[in-house]
Design a binder for these strands. Structure first.
Length: 938
RNA sequence: GCUCGAGUGGUGGAAUUGGUAGACACGUUGGACUUAAAAUCCAAUGACCAUUGCGGUCGUGCGGGUUCAAGUCCCGCCUCGAGUACCA
């Protein structure tokens, strides 16, 4: 009877489904543990071997925690709204709802085959109305809230209204739009309702405003900063330009400081935290106000170097700034307009490519230096970004390289305020180094640090500026001109958004004929005929009924992909709740995610937005903790190994890899299924694969055609996809699971290489044979040998330590050593083999179940809580046994601790160098290996 | 440019965190079993020298340093990967 993995795996997958083995309960006396995977986008291509890597790792840990006696929540679901799902639908010409459904079914089939211990009764899909109802609900909470800077938390907007009614906004410290002007209580109370609404919109945590956005015409939508990579869209790689549009945004900036501080409290990879810190981009400095000569206007700038204020010789504004048009003089108007025009047309990518070229125009206007009253020319230049700070800088060419380059380029004077420095070649940008200020009025003779304090104090006393902290993090744009997303639950009355009442949720996505995105940015929901809100009937009605008195148009933008994924992990706790997004009891019991596994590509997207929503919902008292993921591990990507053939330029002749040296060849990707494990190509199969190879002639080396290899991302278009189903078919899911873990550390990116899989597979066969020594199952009830006990205990120790540290590759090595040793010992004792089956069960999940059953148990091994995983047992069993050597000094390192003083002396006397080193002192501990002293302590 | 991270056999990767470098696996070579193949088992496998007997020398990207002891710590380089990109 051999190891029939196909039969065994099918049997146990059926058993788990039937018995709901992995069903987690919300009531339990056991301690809880929540293991979460980042849920997948159900794209059309199905899973490749890279996708399950993280799921396997988290599954092992979840199963391990169950054995340790925890009530484990290990759910799975689908992020089924958003660009990837929609793009696939567009490509295949099918409705996204349909493609999403079929894709999910395919994913589920593939996932089931790998034997995960997910509790599928808790499955969520972000595109289900039951789910997005609560996404919309959270949106409404944000709409009805503002950020109180004094209390440093979000509060209901009603409490802001109360303050306005009593004191206006003069004493209110709240996060708001930059354009807010001060008003008194009288002024507020005198406002019309719609004026009040307009003002409140500047304070709401989600708000609508005219903003400069990243427009991607190909995708027909705007994109958030984190959806743009290298100036092109992350998805598809299409060009992106700047465009002004009315958009919903999320005031994530209000949480910048807390998002930064919170990182210190979570166990996340340092590199990922660093990415978030950089993205938030905190900088400390000052705001300084420069009056504009001959205008009412004041130019406010942010600078990290207020100490260099006396070095200002010009100002630079971002060309997009409104103020530019107001202050430009008649003579300069033509050139300024031309410059504004040319920068507006440049795509993001052009901008990035031309970072080195210096461009700008003088506006003709002058600012007055707030300390010296000198006239300072105002320029515009595209090296100043409209979106950062106030979109204006005070230029100090002697202290900043960009200002220096700009000044040199346009022949603007440079004033050196740093004593004894040479700035003939470059600016002096150092902050330290004992350089003193000169030509700087009351700052003369001071160094960086003192000058900073003194100048900020001076600015504040004279009301020309103040110490300020600035963040790079910008508010997140929340509207997408796409069909496949959550409808935003608002309608428009008098041009102002009015939220729906909670009781009307979900606002369901309407059916439309044409869901394709448009080039001009008109949302596809514009095609919906049934998309108006009747406030009297309180329901969605036909567009024809819009009358702007009782029936109003509904919002046509939808939410971005990150909306649903920003809170889904709480829905798993209580997935069927119809009255709350999660019940208080469920949230209090499960509390937070204990272990979160996913890729680092979400560092500045999902992982930041979800922390923002978490903090917001925490502020409002809906959630028990401020950070939702205690520990996070990034799994590295599994890459593909593409295969190449080399066509001699202009011919049908294909050269084997070793023959291309010095030849003019063109590498062409071929499907990796046409290549065997030794990189040899099946030439006949290639001819049939694609017509372009039908006439191919192959030039062989050593009788075979060798292909070239290159490691790159796994993708259908690169013909390098390895399908997990095929691996399961050939070797079994247990082999797949163990091999993926054996490949290397989980955090590391690594290419898939099927060549090594036989090692893991034969390990499983060997394990099987351990229980079936003569082809039939047989274990003995005799007492185990000391040797076998030692092997088992060493394995328990090593495996436990390795699982705790997520070092699954070394853990599997330990299993291999264990089984090899037990085989050599001809061990067949139940008292060894039974614990071994349990130990193996998080890894070889199906095999362990089968062995467990054969050992005579009627329950599932997955649910067994066994003392071998308990520390008490572990400590006792983990004592190291002496290892004997045939030398003079037969000690293990552990034993050397027990050397008597006399023995230590003997060892020292035997070694001249040691005597010299010790100089008569007596060591506490001596560590010895055969023939050598390797450590002396004391 | 800036910020992280990494460089170890033919290959993937270990190394108790300063203590016998190369665990485990793949690959390769030889052997056993077999009519044969597959499967399985055994042995060898960092390089170089020696080999009837022991053994020896060099070895963790490069160059220095600390230490009885360095893949691991410090200083200076080189290469690769990731993130970010005029952030004032």
């Amino acid at each position: 009877m051999g190891y029939n993995f196909l039969e065994i795996e099918e049997k146990w997958q059926g058993y788990w489904a039937k018995n709901k083995t992995f069903h987690a309960k919300n009531e339990s006396q056991l301690p809880k543990y929540y293991v979460l995977d980042m849920f997948p986008y159900p794209s059309g291509a199905g899973l490749h071997v890279g996708h399950p890597l993280g799921y396997i790792a988290s599954d092992i840990y979840a199963r391990y925690k169950r054995h340790k006696g925890f009530n484990v929540l290990h759910p799975q679901g689908y992020d089924s709204f958003g660009l990837p799902a929609e793009q696939y639908a567009i490509q295949t010409g099918q409705h996204p709802e349909l493609t999403t459904k079929t894709n999910i079914a395919r994913y589920r089939e593939q996932l089931d085959r790998i034997g995960f211990s997910f509790d599928w009764s808790r499955e969520v899909r972000t595109s289900n109305p039951d789910f997005y109802r609560w996404t919309q609900w959270i949106f409404l909470q944000l709409f009805h809230s503002y950020y109180d800077k004094t209390a440093d938390k979000a509060k209901p907007i009603s409490s802001l209204v109360e303050q306005f009614e009593q004191n206006g906004n003069l004493s209110v410290k709240a996060e708001c739009a930059a354009t807010v002007t001060p008003f008194t209580a009288e002024e507020w109370n005198g406002c019309t309702t719609s004026k009040k609404e307009e003002i409140l919109l500047d304070y709401r945590l989600t708000y609508i405003s005219e903003t400069e956005v990243n427009w991607c015409a190909e995708l027909g939508t705007i994109l958030a900063n984190d959806e743009i990579v290298n100036g092109v869209s992350e998805r598809g790689g299409y060009p992106v330009t700047k465009k002004k549009m009315k958009q919903w945004s999320m005031r994530i900036g209000a949480y910048a400081e807390r998002l930064l501080q919170g990182l210190a409290t979570v166990d996340w990879p340092e590199s990922l935290k660093e990415m978030q810190r950089n993205w938030i981009g905190k900088s400390i400095g000052a705001s300084v106000r420069f009056p504009v000569e001959g205008h009412q206007a004041t130019l406010e700038v942010f600078t990290t170097r207020p100490d260099t204020l006396f070095g200002v010789t010009f100002m630079t504004l971002a060309p997009e700034l409104e103020l530019v048009k107001k202050i430009t003089t008649a003579e300069q108007k033509a050139s300024v307009d031309a410059y504004i025009e040319s920068t507006a047309q440049r795509s993001e990518r052009d901008r990035m490519a031309n970072v080195k070229t210096i461009s700008g125009v003088f506006t003709g206007a002058y600012a007055l230096h707030p300390l010296t009253q000198e006239r300072v020319p105002i320029w515009i230049g595209d090296y100043v970004l409209a979106g950062y700070g106030t979109g204006a800088v005070m230029a100090v060419p002697c202290g900043d390289q960009r200002d220096y380059d700009f000044a040199k380029h346009f022949d603007i004077p440079i004033k050196n305020i740093f004593a004894e420095t040479d700035i003939s070649e470059a600016a002096y940008a150092e902050k330290s180094g004992g350089v003193k200020l000169q030509d700087s009025g009351f700052l003369n003779g001071l160094e960086y640090k003192e000058a900073m304090t003194k100048v900020i104090q001076h600015l504040e006393e004279n009301n020309i500026g103040q110490g300020t902290i600035n963040y790079r993090l910008r508010d997140a744009i929340f509207s997408r001109q796409r069909y496949w997303g959550e409808p935003i639950p608002v309608y428009y009355q008098n041009g102002l958004p009015v939220p729906l009442d909670e009781k009307h949720l979900p606002l369901e996505l309407p059916k439309v004929e044409n869901y394709l995105p448009t080039q001009d940015g008109a949302p596809p929901l514009g095609n919906a005929t049934h998309w108006a809100w009747d406030v009297e009937e309180e329901k969605v009605v036909d567009n024809k009924q819009i009358n702007h008195e009782t029936v109003f148009p509904l919002e046509m933008n939808t939410m971005p992909g990150w909306a649903g994924s920003s809170w889904y992990f709480y829905r798993y706790m209580d997935p069927h709740n119809a009255t709350a997004f999660v019940s208080k009891e469920a949230a209090d019991y499960w509390k937070e995610v204990d272990l979160y596994l996913g890729g680092s590509e979400h560092a500045t997207g999902h992982l930041l937005y979800s922390r923002f929503w978490q903090k917001f919902l925490f502020d409002l008292g809906h959630l028990p903790v401020e950070e939702y993921a205690k520990k996070l591990i990034n799994q590295g990507m599994i890459l593909g190994s593409s295969a190449f053939v080399y066509r001699k330029a202009g011919t049908q002749e294909y050269l084997s890899k070793g023959l291309i040296e010095g030849e003019q060849v063109e590498p062409i990707r071929v499907d990796i299924s046409l290549v065997n494990l030794s990189d040899e190509l099946d030439c006949e199969a290639l001819k049939k694969w694609q017509p372009q190879f039908a006439e191919a002639r192959f030039v062989l080396e050593d009788g075979v055609y060798k292909v070239g290899r290159e490691v790159e991302k796994m993708s259908k278009s690169k013909y390098n996809v390895v399908n997990p189903d095929q691996i399961c078919e050939d070797y079994g899911a247990d082999t797949l699971r163990m091999y993926e873990m054996f490949l290397g550390p989980i955090e590391q990116a690594k290419p898939w290489n099927t060549a090594g899989i036989s090692g893991v597979h034969s390990f499983l066969k060997k394990t099987w044979r351990l229980y079936h020594p003569n082809e039939t199952f047989s274990v003995s009830d005799d007492a185990p040998s000391a040797e076998s006990l030692k092997t088992l205990h060493q394995t328990i120790k090593k495996v436990t330590e390795d699982i705790e540290q997520f070092s699954f590759n070394t853990c599997i090595s330990a299993f291999m050593i264990c089984v090899n040793e037990l085989s050599a010992q001809k061990c067949n004792q139940r008292s060894i083999l039974e614990p071994l089956a349990i130990l193996l069960s998080p890894f070889a999940v199906h095999l362990a179940e089968e062995l467990w059953e054969r050992l005579g148990h009627s329950d599932s091994v997955s649910t067994v809580s066994y003392p071998i995983f308990e520390e008490k047992y572990l400590v006792e069993s983990s004592k190291n046994y002496p290892v004997s050597f045939n030398g003079k000094m037969r000690f293990t390192r552990e034993l050397s601790l027990e050397l008597s003083p006399k023995e230590i002396e003997e060892i020292i006397l035997a070694d001249e160098q040691t005597q010299k080193h010790l100089q008569g002192r007596t060591p506490k501990k001596v560590i010895v290996v055969p023939g050598k002293i390797i450590n002396i302590v004391g």
